[in-house]
Design a protein around this nucleic acid. Structure first.
Length: 482
RNA sequence: GGCCCGUUCGUCUAGGGGUUAGGACGCCGGCCUCUCACGCCGGUAACAGGGGUUCAAAUCCCCUACGGGCUACCA
């Protein structure tokens, strides 16, 4: 509980620091300028987990005030991505574009209470002021020239600025970063409403967070300094500060290409949601040495103290490993449901059985679907290298003996099939490999596949017997050519 | 430039005065074995640098370097 240092309590709402009694209300507030990428998904996840952990409320707010840059399909993709990951929202989505009346009302309130004022300085005037300050090597902050003026020019455009404290320090107890101190002289009276009357980002965030009674603001650490602009605003409204937790952003998510959407990880790369959730949760958060977490385990274990204060890098190899784990842990019938659409078929018991033998050797659904296709082909092509190596003339007699026995099998199941091969090996004092590999090549065309007996079983009698006969013919042809 | 935040194996991280600095991914080697995988066993590899404080520093303090953020009538 590093945020409970005495110097800090004085500036924050102490009642909210008591985990036992407070009501947790958190939010994820994306701006719909792009799709939901992994970084955003992680921020959403931390909030969602925190809410679930504490029996709180998870709120979704779409920050679409910048009409120019917003795209409807982006907002929909964000919603869809969150739904896929299983992060259901308790309230919302709320759209900031619907909330203009509230913002206008709050701006008037601040004007009336004297916490904000109209600034009639023109853009040119401001530019000149900044240039002069910079020429003197000073920080280009607004000089508050209209803060205390009482005259109001007619027909002159104005912006509305918030009266920030002029000096002094502020220490905020960040739940992730610890105590952070900032000097007010670094900040100026920032604009809360533009000359067209529209409210600015830092203002609407606070209005909304107050209105939605947000108790914990868990967001990217690019907002850390914004927090010091926002804090006095809470006080101007006479409201307590929420607990802030600034999470370091994820590094290494391909900047040039833009980071891929979660949908791409799902659709093109074939990751399962359990794997994505598990990987994302562990990127920048840890719980001892544990690597594998089900969503339920995450809900039980997640806390802000385990969040690292330094940024982590995205690593596709580790994400793939986590995904492999979940792909194997999932019920085969469930996985069959997930890969069937990728293969253009309907899931059934046979596909589930195929999934089961592919689970230990698949990294992703894409990978698994590709391997499963082998079981749905009408014919095969013998791999030349494999055939040359394993379909030796000497194996001809082996096939002659095995084919009738397999043909005579009453039940085409892996145990019965295995028994045929084992009896054969015992009778001839051969290692299983001597006959398993030639058979594998005969029925699959290549030298790599899941276990032979399962493969033969699932390929089915109708596929295997003709293929064995064809391989026998191939050997005969080879013999004749010698 | 100013301010804020950060820096433990290649990567994710544990550890917060006394540890052979632990785990995981990756990589390498071995075992298992009908192939490929899975699994199991083992190996590789880190406290950014410099000063302090201390009997003792990866852990506390300061400086430097590097990385990131903020510094808009963007969000």
């Amino acid at each position: 509980m590093r945020w409970q240092s005495p110097s800090v309590i004085a500036s924050a709402d102490t009642s909210r620091l008591d985990e036992g009694t407070m009501t947790v209300r958190v939010r994820f507030a994306p701006s719909p300028t792009g799709f939901l990428h992994l970084g955003g998904a992680r921020t959403a996840l931390f909030n969602w987990l925190y809410a679930r952990r504490h029996g709180g409320t998870f709120i979704l707010r779409i920050e679409d005030t910048d009409v120019e840059r917003n795209k409807q399909e982006a907002a929909e993709a964000i919603l869809e991505g969150m739904a896929w990951l299983g992060m259901e929202t308790d309230e919302g989505p709320f759209w900031q574009s619907d909330r203009g009346a509230l913002y206008r009302e709050k701006i008037q309130e601040l004007l009336a209470s004297g916490h904000a004022y109209k600034c009639y300085a023109t853009k040119g005037e401001l530019d000149q002021m900044r240039e002069e300050l910079q020429a003197k090597g000073l920080k280009p902050l607004y000089d508050r020239r209209w803060r205390d003026r009482t005259d109001h020019p007619e027909d002159t455009p104005f912006v509305i600025r918030f009266k920030m404290p002029i000096d002094g320090d502020r220490t905020l107890a960040d739940a992730v970063k610890g105590d952070v101190t900032f000097a007010y002289k670094e900040l100026d009276d920032w604009i809360i409403a533009r000359s067209d009357g529209s409210p600015t980002y830092n203002f609407v965030v606070v209005v909304d967070d107050i209105d939605m009674r947000i108790s914990h603001v868990i967001r990217g650490d690019d907002h850390l300094t914004n927090t010091f602009k926002q804090a006095p605003l809470y006080e101007a409204f006479g409201k307590p500060l929420p607990v802030f937790g600034h999470v370091p952003k994820v590094a290494g998510l391909s900047k040039r290409l833009g980071s891929p959407s979660v949908q791409r990880y799902r659709d093109e790369l074939g990751f399962v949601r359990e794997g994505v959730i598990n990987y994302l949760s562990r990127l920048g958060w840890s719980h001892g040495d544990q690597e594998i977490f089900s969503t339920e385990e995450l809900v039980a274990a997640f806390d802000l103290e385990g969040v690292s204060s330094s940024p982590g890098a995205f690593d596709i190899d580790k994400m793939t490993w986590v995904n492999e784990h979940w792909l194997r842990a999932l019920d085969p019938a469930d996985v069959a449901q997930r890969i069937a659409p990728r293969m253009g078929i309907k899931p059934d018991a046979r596909l589930a059985a195929i999934v089961e033998i592919l689970q230990p050797r698949s990294s992703t659904l894409v990978d698994m679907a590709a391997q499963a296709k082998m079981f749905y082909r009408d014919d095969i092509e013998l791999d030349e290298k494999a055939a040359k190596k394993w379909l030796k003339v000497s194996t001809g007699p082996h096939f002659d003996e095995l084919i009738p026995k397999l043909t005579a099998l009453a039940s085409w199941d892996r145990a019965s099939i295995g028994a045929v091969f084992e009896a054969f090996c015992e009778a001839h004092e051969l290692k299983l490999g001597k006959i398993a590999q030639p058979t594998r090549v005969a029925v699959t065309g290549g030298s790599v596949s899941p276990g032979l007996f399962e493969t033969v079983e699932l390929l089915g009698r109708d596929a295997c017997l003709p293929r064995l006969a064809a391989a026998r013919a191939w050997i005969a042809a080879r013999e004749a050519a010698q």
